[in-house]
Design a protein around this nucleic acid. Structure first.
Lengths: 233, 233
DNA sequence: CATTTCCTCCATCCAAGGATTTACATCACA
DNA sequence: TGTGATGTAAATCCTTGGATGGAGGAAATG
């Protein structure tokens, strides 16, 4: 590893602002560790270039009018070309950052940042790491934690699922898999009428009128989570 | 802000290893910017101390036999005391890190880390930031992105939902809210028989046998996401 | 021991759901 | 202009689902 000479990382630049694109290109070209294999102002063209050249690294502006940069990232990720993508943006919007990372961006940097930082980020990402400026990673975590708050709030207070008996949970699980009475009876080795009894009890306890509502209640109130928790405990 | 004298952050320490607990306590006590208001080897006791003293900062060992530290974090977060919690762990397990951050930890540090780094992390978190050592944040992001890969893979390839007409989507949405034929007819101002027609078409297109399966297909294949995407587009 | 909870099962009845076919109006697009 | 896709609607027939009440056995709990 130490003696291995460092291959230049091949970079593709996508930014609809041609001035900015030119600027970045010059900057990156000057850098000995990178090799710019393409630069375009069109997201669609960029996707094609990515397919063609399979760069190691892609710098993608995500604030483009024509085609959403996030969508472009998603499409490239789907192609599974092994490119690592850094999102470029003018805004440190936490929702944007979150969405970019969610769909697979390995870095997120602001256009206002110093060029040295851009190069540093590119080095990091090219070497397999993930790069988020600390200011942005804070925002990211805030958003991340917010987005899970509701989910954690589940099971909270009165969750009607807690009133179900073991057998009723089994039946409900099979319901949440789309089984009808007959199928459930078969899988639990009990009669169909017994299943009906259980299902009726479930309806009473969950205060719903039919199986679909029961299934929805279960899914919306962490039924899967609850079970996972029990299993891992 | 600059002239404001910095109030000492009040800290609660929870670690079932009494030796380690004592060590941390000494270390933190020496630090002029912190005030140790409590230290205990019991998670349950720790929760009570948190309620009583409402510390600014909690250092919580998450590898405890008696009670799971993650669970303790969750309980404290539910109390909404305004404490910021740092998870302490011996392992840099990405799943653990992810779960800790998910339930609201504002930092995650390894017991093997230098004490200076611990103090730095405490300072950062106490001042409202989130702290993850860069090595761990890489792991976190890997896990984060993995956990969304499936979700992004949806809509991929053949998603039967794409074959639905606009009206069918409306009907399906009402189905996913637990409505029966009559309710749907009422909400869409069409006859019940028409709803049946649509629903039957939906079943055909989604290749399912009943409404529950249709709802499950919709939910599992990003029906909500799809709609959100359309709305924001 | 008595009581309760849970699981099992049945019968009955009615409502709702689902399959199939046919039909007509509209609209877009070739 | 007509051909296809869509949205609307109905009739029919059968299946499934859901409500209700009753009942017995097993196990736990007091």
């Amino acid at each position: 590893m130490m003696r291995e000479f460092k291959r230049k990382a091949r970079v593709l630049l996508i930014d609809d602002n041609s001035d900015h694109l030119r600027g970045i290109k010059e900057l990156v070209t000057l850098e000995s560790s990178f090799d710019v294999v393409g630069a375009t102002t069109s997201a669609n063209l960029g996707i094609n270039l990515a397919k063609k050249y399979r760069p190691d690294l892609i710098l993608m502006d995500i604030n483009m009018p024509e085609k959403d940069g996030l969508q472009a990232i998603q499409e490239i990720e789907k192609l599974d070309l092994g490119c690592r993508i850094i999102a470029l943006s003018g805004y440190d919007d936490s929702d944007l950052i979150f969405r970019a990372m969610k769909i697979g961006a390995k870095g997120y940097i602001l256009k206002t940042m110093a060029s040295a930082q851009l190069i540093y980020a590119m080095d990091e990402v090219a070497s397999g790491k993930v790069y988020l400026p600390s200011a942005l990673s804070s925002r990211f975590f805030e958003y991340f934690q917010d987005s899970y708050k509701e989910e954690n709030a589940i099971s909270e207070e009165e969750n009607l699922l807690t009133y179900l008996t073991g057998r009723e949970e089994e039946v409900l699980e099979l319901l949440t898999q789309g089984n009808n009475y007959k199928a459930i009876a078969g899988k639990l080795f009990i009669s169909e009428t017994t299943v009906k009894t259980h299902v009726n009890n479930i309806f009473q306890k969950l205060q719903v009128n039919d199986r679909t509502q029961a299934v929805l209640y279960a899914l919306n109130n962490g039924f899967a989570n609850r079970k996972r928790a029990k299993l891992t405990a």
